[in-house]
């Protein structure tokens, strides 16, 4: 069979709309996930042991199970618990946030852990209060170290967002599958969809590398 991409021009708007939805899902889940991830990281360092345990189990569970099953679980099971239906948009955002938060809490934790003992000694020797130490020394350094990885996590969420097509969310993947089914031309459609994802994700991965180098050069951390 001949490969001909030209018919895709007719579906340009649909694909762009799908990409728009994918980006919207990604950005919302990314923003909420950062907040949730930071809270989780703090909970995992809590002085109350049960709080630490629950947070750890949460994180390990979301990291240790397929995202697809998390999506199904939230979409099909949450409504039974909550007693109301979730729109697939809500379910998609919720799932990606809960998952993203678990991943990003690990990033924050690694960032906090990587601050050397000498930095704490110096804070001590200068008589800085625990509050000043946390807000002026630990948090900024942890953030600087975490930013590139958080961005990578964001790219991960962008890719995982394709899974919400399984619960009928009309994002890029879903629209691609629909077009493929309707036209019977999977080669062109899936190649195009893959390229659209690539065109967004690839520059971002370069940005991550660039940021990493820049932070390393500027601050040597």
């Amino acid at each position: 069979m001949t490969i001909d991409f030209s018919f895709l021009a007719r579906y340009q708007d649909a694909l762009l709309m799908g990409l728009g939805m994918t980006l919207r899902l990604t950005l919302i889940a990314f923003a909420l996930g950062i907040v949730w991830g930071f809270v989780l990281a703090l909970l995992r360092n809590s002085s109350i042991a049960p709080v630490r345990w629950i947070a750890a189990v949460y994180v390990e569970f979301f990291r240790g199970t397929p995202v697809l099953i998390q999506i199904f679980w939230i979409f099909y099971c949450m409504p039974i618990f909550l007693g109301t239906d979730l729109s697939n948009f809500t379910a998609a955002v919720l799932c990606l946030t809960l998952y993203g938060g678990a991943i990003m809490s690990e990033t924050f934790r690694a960032g906090m852990k990587s601050i050397g003992r000498e930095q704490y000694d110096a804070c001590h020797a200068l008589g800085l209060s625990p509050w000043t130490r946390a807000t002026r020394i630990v948090l900024p350094q942890a953030t600087l170290r975490s930013v590139p990885v958080l961005l990578s996590n964001g790219i991960g969420i962008f890719k995982e967002s394709s899974l919400v097509s399984a619960i009928g969310m009309m994002e890029l993947m879903f629209i691609g599958t629909t077009i493929s089914n309707r036209t019977g031309r999977p080669v062109e459609v899936f190649t195009a969809v893959a390229l659209i994802y690539f065109v967004v994700a690839f520059p971002l991965t370069r940005l991550v590398t660039w940021l990493e180098k820049r932070i390393l050069k500027r601050f040597a951390i």
Partner: peptide, 19 residues
């Protein structure tokens, strides 16, 4: 490497199965 790392696995699977 970049193509596989920068696209969703789901797309890759569908691509393999259909294309």
């Amino acid at each position: 490497i970049e193509l596989f790392r920068c696209t969703p696995v789901l797309v890759q699977i569908l691509w393999f199965f259909y294309c």
